[in-house]
Amino acid sequence: MRFLSLYRHARPEGVPPSEREMAEMGRLIDEMTRAGVLLATEGCMPSAQGARVRLAQGTFAVTAGPFAEAGEAIGGFALIQARSREEAIEWSKRFLKVIGDGECEIRQLHDAPDCMG
């Protein structure tokens, strides 16, 4: 099964990670790739470059970034193939341990089910 892990950071945006953090993150990504778990991952540019698009009762509302509220801005995502939700949780913990305070929202994705034929 596959999971989307959506990361929201607690620290203010725009603080670049230290070299050490970068190296640790590189190692974790390498480990997850070599374990066959990580299908894709990207980090987001600061939310100032982003926007929110809403449709309410037929009317669009577009809000340009930044989204200042702590824990609101999405920092990145990982697409994970795991055998259980718990395994996805464990990998997300390892990710957070490297990147620091923040939150990962883990969502299972629709997959082709084992099907009768």
Binding site: M1, T33, R34, A35, G36, V37, Q81, R83, D111, A112, P113, D114, C115, M116, G117
Partner: peptide, 27 residues
């Protein structure tokens, strides 16, 4: 393409094989 049983696909087994293959590619 399952050779036995009612299911004719078991994607979870495909995923296990894929994961093993990716691990081997890393090694």
């Amino acid at each position: 393409t399952a050779t036995a049983g009612e299911d004719w696909m078991r994607p979870s087994l495909c995923e296990d094989a894929l994961r093993l293959g990716r691990v081997l590619a890393g090694l």
